[in-house]
């Protein structure tokens, strides 16, 4: 008995999978992935919503009341609402039709974080669009109007996990405006990928720090980044760095000393973490990229087949992280 049930269950689930597969293929054919998608009749599906079915039931009750009371105005009102349902089909459809959904960008993120996906909804005609509902499976949801603006940016957040390119799947664009009786929707595949960096993994010390300076130490030179200490005032020292407050208290004139890390170039090298797995190496490198970036120190990256010269700054960091994220992964393959 039990086994029969599981067989049936398995059979059913395989049928469901087959149906879903077929549907997926069909949708793919009908709505191929693109950078921007303009919604037209090939893409828009429309069907009475749950509310619409409930409304239909209410209409049936009204019709029965009209018949039983032989009340012509009740008939009239029932028919008016029934045809309102029909007219609403067109309005609901029009609310979605002609919209252009454009993939803007996806924010890079670390595993476990939420990546921000930015899409733009544009209208082609000056018609007001209301209550456009957008959501990826598993993402946050958004409800937007297009009334005073011609386009609106929509931010959707979605957790990402694996290093590499993350594709959020098909975006659901849905509307039940104006009456909620009909649900008009489409699934669009946007050519939008979020970059997922390796998970940063701290290591206490950067083993065998590879720098340009021969001794390899993190040389400290006098600069003005951080207050470091005092030393006696010597002739030639800047008056502006003199410790006047101490002098006023009767101490000997002293000079304030500041430190800064010297212009040095750290190479974050694949070989620094020899003996570890690929992902672990990347994670450690990632951690150090962030560490150096925070200190605004220059760093370069050496991976097998990739070399990025030492530099500092946001763009540099992104470039380095991107290389780490995509190491060993073909471009935009999943």
């Amino acid at each position: 008995m039990d086994s029969v049930q599981t067989t049936v269950e398995r059979h059913r689930s395989s049928v469901r999978k087959w149906v879903r597969n077929r549907f997926g293929k069909w949708v793919n054919r009908r709505i191929p992935p693109a950078r921007e998608v303009t919604l037209d009749q090939r893409r828009i599906f429309i069907f009475p919503s749950r509310t619409g079915l409930f409304f239909g039931c209410s209409l049936l009750v009204m019709l029965v009341a009209a018949i039983n009371f032989e009340n012509n105005l009740s008939y009239a009102l029932t028919f008016l609402l029934a045809t309102l349902f029909v007219v609403a089909t067109l309005h609901t459809y029009a609310n979605l039709s002609g919209l252009t959904i454009r993939a803007v960008r996806a924010q890079a993120a670390f595993p476990g974080q939420q990546s921000e996906f930015l899409v733009m909804v544009e209208r082609s005609k000056q018609r007001d669009h209301y209550a456009l509902y957008l959501k990826w499976p598993g993402s946050s949801e958004a409800m937007v109007n297009l009334v005073d603006e011609d386009s609106v940016k929509v931010q959707l957040h979605m957790p990402v996990d694996k290093r590499g390119w993350f594709h959020p799947g098909r975006l659901l664009v849905e509307s039940t405006y104006p009456l909620g009786l009909l649900r008009c929707w489409t699934w669009i595949d946007l050519d939008l990928y979020a970059l997922v960096y390796p998970r940063p993994l701290s290591s206490a010390e950067l083993p065998g720090l590879a720098t340009d300076t021969p001794d390899g130490a993190a040389a400290m030179v006098m600069g003005n980044d951080d207050f470091y200490g005092f030393r006696d005032y010597r002739k030639g020292d800047s008056l502006r760095q003199a410790h006047w407050k101490g002098f006023a208290k009767g101490q000997a004139l002293q000079t304030k000393q500041y430190t800064a890390y010297a212009d040095r170039s750290v190479w974050l090298d694949w070989e620094l973490f020899a003996g570890m797995g690929v992902e672990q190496r990347l994670s450690h490198l990632c951690y150090w990229v962030l560490a150096f970036d925070e200190r605004r120190e220059e760093y370069g990256l050496r991976l097998p087949g990739v070399t990025i010269a030492p530099a500092v700054g946001e763009k540099h960091r992104e470039q380095v992280l991107k290389e780490l994220a995509l190491f060993g992964i073909g471009d935009k393959s999943r």
Binding site: G223, N224, S238, R240, Q241, A242, W244, F247, A248, A260
Partner: peptide, 22 residues
């Protein structure tokens, strides 16, 4: 330059030991 301090641009109060004031 990299060793320029804010005080180098804005100015600084210097202690004058003669009249003991900044």
């Amino acid at each position: 330059t990299s060793d320029l301090l804010p005080a180098d641009i804005l100015g600084v109060s210097v202690f004058d030991s003669n009249d003991a004031s900044f």
